[in-house]
Design a protein around this nucleic acid. Structure first.
Lengths: 163, 163
DNA sequence: TTTATTGCAAAGGGTTTGCACGTGC
DNA sequence: GCACGTGCAAACCCTTTGCAATAAA
């Protein structure tokens, strides 16, 4: 049931990807479709390892080399954001139809939450201007301990949510 | 001449390191002293590779394994900050006696500049509070093109300043 | 058919580790 | 002398790549 719902709601981004591929003269392969489907149905941040495991459970084993290559295409096409949160591997999230945000990461359980702050965005533009830079991107990550999550019991310091 | 000056001005941090080692019951070895000296005399951000090369030129070849181990001690001891600016290897900078700052990185030449912004710092604390986090650290990196440096000729898109 | 894509296995690059030897204390 | 530190080489982990087989257009 859950999977049917999420498949429904994410039809759009997947056809966006197919369209993007065609525009670029790239082929719409089975692997690319499966990987994109899985990615657009994940509601959280993921590592390549996580993605590969999910695909394997879905009986869609795709080689890691191919997954890396597909992810690289999606990042270049602006459909996927790549993050470095300090762990050994990179973390990704799909960004189609989603507004910009930054992240706050729990050092105990690894949970990743999002936030937006206009004041900070504005200050960044101002700083870049003052320093003679043409700003193209930024990365802001806060690290801490999720007191609130711990109280509600939804933080387990044992489990790592990604990677 | 240059090296004599910089050796002079950095005596303090080096004895701080020796003191830290003693406190922790660690030994003040030749390698640790040489590495710390080199680090405190570097006025910029550096990678392990960069550091190893500098040491080699100073006729103080120290194995990479040892350099990694020493750096790890210094990071744990709060004498060294570790950054991830997107390149393949981590970037370090000594932080004793230096106030907190964030970084702006040129995507063309790799130059790394520092800035401080109180407004952003305050906003971060506020965000963490609202999200129920006890903030322990953060990383804010801006990426762009150094228009000003290019105009003055001090930006070479060919050279990478670190790593 | 043509050209891009895949999977495999091997290579790469940065970092860590096991172990025997060396060195501070 | 004891315990910790070092160097070497091998191991590790994540990621990339060469190449022959395969599939999209």
């Amino acid at each position: 049931m859950k999977s049917r719902e999420s498949t429904q709601k994410n039809i759009q981004p997947i056809s966006d990807f197919a369209e993007y591929l065609k525009e670029k003269g790239l082929k719409v392969t089975n692997q690319r479709t499966l990987v994109a489907q899985k990615i657009f149905n994940m509601d959280s941040h993921f590592s390549v390892d996580h993605l590969a495991n999910e695909l394997r459970q879905k009986h869609a084993s795709i080689s890691r080399a191919t997954i890396y290559r597909i992810i690289s295409v999606m990042v270049e096409g602006g459909l996927l954001a790549e993050h470095n949160f300090g762990s050994s591997s990179k973390i990704y999230e799909h960004i189609s139809n989603r507004k910009h945000h930054d992240h706050i990461i729990c050092l105990d359980c690894g949970s990743i939450q999002e936030f937006c702050n206009e004041e900070i965005e504005t200050a960044q533009l101002q700083i870049a201007k003052e320093m003679g830079f043409e700003l193209s991107e930024h990365s802001l990550n806060l690290y801490g301990h999720c007191v609130k999550l711990k109280k509600s019991g939804s933080c387990s310091s044992m489990k790592k949510s990604t990677n």
